[in-house]
Amino acid sequence: MKKIDTQFSRSFSYFVTLMLILAVTGCSVKFVADYDEVTDKSVTELQRKVERFLVDIQRKVGTDEAAYSKHTGFYDEVRVDLSAIRVRAAAREKNEITLEQLDLIQKNLDNLEKLHELGFNARTKLNLCVRLLVRVSPLS
């Protein structure tokens, strides 16, 4: 009984000491990464680039100027931009949700490109794609 009491007493002491340390240092458990201004600005600029492109394409739909072959550079450029944003996001801890969002944006870029290859229809609501293609917030 005396041995158990001693062991319990020791364990309890360790526990109290640990709690005191945590209280003093103000430890908190983080489940997501902190906000990153650089990523936020990069995504905002990317959104502007996509919107400019889609506004331009919407105007040209039905003409040769809207042909996919004339705009492959846009998709390559956005792909490179997204890749750079993703590399930075991947370097931050607890950033899985942002990475998932960026992957979804990449998938949507791929889908938009396929749609473009098949040919946009004048009635296609590309503005919906604009609104929804790049939505990553709050960013980490």
Binding site: L104, L132, R135
Partner: peptide, 17 residues
């Protein structure tokens, strides 16, 4: 199918915020 996929992915992105 492509149009719908874009919408679904966008919904996923938004809800993840």
């Amino acid at each position: 199918r492509l149009h719908l996929e874009i919408q679904k992915n966008s919904a996923r992105t938004v809800l993840l915020t």
